[in-house]
Simulated assay, not measured.
Amino acid sequence: MASLQAEEDVVALETPASDVFIAPSINHEALLSGASYTHFSAVPPSLLPTPNPESPESSETSIPGPECVLGVDEAGRGPVLGPMVYGLLYLPLPLSDPLLRKTHHFDDSKVLTPAVRSNLMEKLCTPGTDLHAQCGWAVEVMSARDIGANMMKPTGTYNLNAQAMDATIALIEGVYKRGVNVKEIYIDTIGNPATYQKKLERVFPTAKVTVAKKADSLYPCVSAASVCAKVTRDAALEVLYESYVKKPDEDVEMDGTTVKAEVAEEAGWGSGYPSDARCTSWLKRNMDPIFGWGSECRFSWGTAKDMLDAKGAAAKVDWPVEEDDEMMRVTDFFSGEKEADVDELGSWFGRPVGTKVF
């Protein structure tokens, strides 16, 4: 009973707030088309390098901005519905704990209520707030379609850990390219922390890199990054779900009376996690017999595979495998026996035609 209650509590925390903040990181067109994308906030002016007064025309001699700490975390690694989002946040080193932890009480997004994390994200995006003035952030939205396609490649599987590593590196590189003076990097681990850290140290040799389990609880910048990732995913789920909500038909006239068409209410898909009964129920109700679901579903997940493979749940399609010239080796063109009595030079331009054909 206790374990069941704990699971229900987790699902409740993972479910988006009913009025989740729609951050600038929400790209409706990309989400609905199933595309992955990246969003970077503007760098706060106080964190940018400034021209050197002694050599104002030379960008190479500019004065670096204040030393910054940067955190990275993800949201949505396990769900069968919706994207996985990698979030990043950076700010001046001396402000990390007092601003994020003591003033605004950032914590691992999984222990914050949906409403609290939504409010924190809104403050971060609102000009005039201390968070907006001191912090920069970014997200990599990895669509369910791309995650599944990469994991199901027929050759050279691009697994989730490799995809996550590449997303992390791309985000951090994007911050460096924008001129931010990053000196410390903290990341919540995927896999073995030591292996992950050594690889990142080679990629970013000028920064102190720390990769740790539960980093989203230990380091304020990682906590804030987890909120950026989680609220972006929450809002993305809402945008994707809206495309399935049936719109009421236009009012119609019947015997001189205006009548509103009624539409049955959907129960929603909840958090998108397989352990969420609303999610699995939605998948069952909305499964196409041929195509399954749309680009919001991770077809490489066991939940989706099992439903599609269930007896009578989906149409079975056998794709014929035909041998063709593409399967031949280059050496096959040199090792075959020559045809007897063939004019090689003549057949290069076409076989000779006899008079019988006329």
Rank of each mutant, 00 (worst) to 15 (best):
residue 3 S to K: 15
residue 9 D to I: 04
residue 12 A to L: 08
residue 12 A to T: 12
residue 14 E to H: 10
residue 16 P to V: 06
residue 18 S to Q: 12
residue 24 P to Q: 08
residue 25 S to P: 04
residue 25 S to N: 06
residue 26 I to W: 06
residue 30 A to W: 00
residue 31 L to H: 04
residue 32 L to K: 10
residue 38 T to Q: 09
residue 40 F to W: 12
residue 40 F to L: 07
residue 42 A to T: 14
residue 44 P to L: 01
residue 44 P to D: 05
residue 45 P to I: 07
residue 46 S to G: 07
residue 55 S to Q: 13
residue 59 S to H: 08
residue 64 P to T: 00
residue 66 P to H: 05
residue 67 E to I: 03
residue 68 C to L: 09
residue 70 L to V: 13
residue 71 G to D: 06
residue 73 D to Y: 00
residue 77 R to I: 04
residue 77 R to E: 02
residue 78 G to Y: 01
residue 79 P to G: 01
residue 82 G to Y: 02
residue 83 P to I: 03
residue 85 V to R: 01
residue 88 L to D: 01
residue 90 Y to F: 15
residue 97 D to I: 11
residue 97 D to W: 05
residue 107 D to Q: 15
residue 107 D to A: 15
residue 111 V to Y: 09
residue 113 T to H: 02
residue 121 M to R: 02
residue 125 C to L: 08
residue 126 T to H: 07
residue 127 P to L: 10
residue 128 G to W: 04
residue 129 T to A: 11
residue 133 A to F: 02
residue 134 Q to V: 00
residue 141 V to P: 08
residue 141 V to L: 11
residue 142 M to C: 12
residue 148 G to Q: 05
residue 151 M to T: 06
residue 154 P to G: 06
residue 157 T to I: 11
residue 160 L to D: 10
residue 162 A to G: 02
residue 162 A to D: 11
residue 174 G to P: 08
residue 175 V to Y: 02
residue 179 G to Y: 01
residue 181 N to V: 00
residue 182 V to A: 11
residue 188 D to Q: 04
residue 195 T to Q: 13
residue 195 T to I: 07
residue 196 Y to G: 03
residue 203 V to K: 15
residue 203 V to W: 03
residue 208 K to Y: 09
residue 209 V to I: 15
residue 214 K to V: 02
residue 218 L to I: 03
residue 218 L to C: 06
residue 219 Y to W: 07
residue 220 P to T: 06
residue 221 C to N: 05
residue 223 S to K: 04
residue 225 A to L: 06
residue 226 S to L: 08
residue 231 V to F: 03
residue 243 S to G: 09
residue 243 S to Q: 13
residue 246 K to E: 14
residue 246 K to G: 09
residue 246 K to F: 04
residue 247 K to A: 14
residue 248 P to S: 12
residue 248 P to L: 09
residue 250 E to W: 13
residue 250 E to I: 02
residue 251 D to T: 10
residue 268 G to C: 10
residue 269 W to Y: 13
residue 269 W to G: 07
residue 272 G to F: 04
residue 275 S to F: 00
residue 277 A to R: 11
residue 278 R to V: 01
residue 284 K to R: 15
residue 286 N to H: 15
residue 287 M to F: 07
residue 288 D to S: 12
residue 291 F to M: 13
residue 292 G to R: 10
residue 292 G to W: 01
residue 293 W to A: 06
residue 301 W to N: 10
residue 302 G to Y: 02
residue 302 G to V: 10
residue 307 M to R: 05
residue 308 L to V: 14
residue 310 A to V: 07
residue 310 A to H: 03
residue 311 K to F: 09
residue 311 K to H: 12
residue 313 A to G: 09
residue 315 A to Q: 13
residue 316 K to F: 06
residue 319 W to P: 00
residue 322 E to W: 09
residue 326 E to F: 10
residue 329 R to I: 01
residue 332 D to K: 14
residue 332 D to Q: 11
residue 332 D to I: 03
residue 336 G to I: 12
residue 338 K to I: 01
residue 339 E to C: 01
residue 341 D to E: 15
residue 341 D to Q: 12
residue 342 V to H: 01
residue 345 L to Y: 05
residue 351 R to S: 10
residue 354 G to K: 07
residue 358 F to V: 14
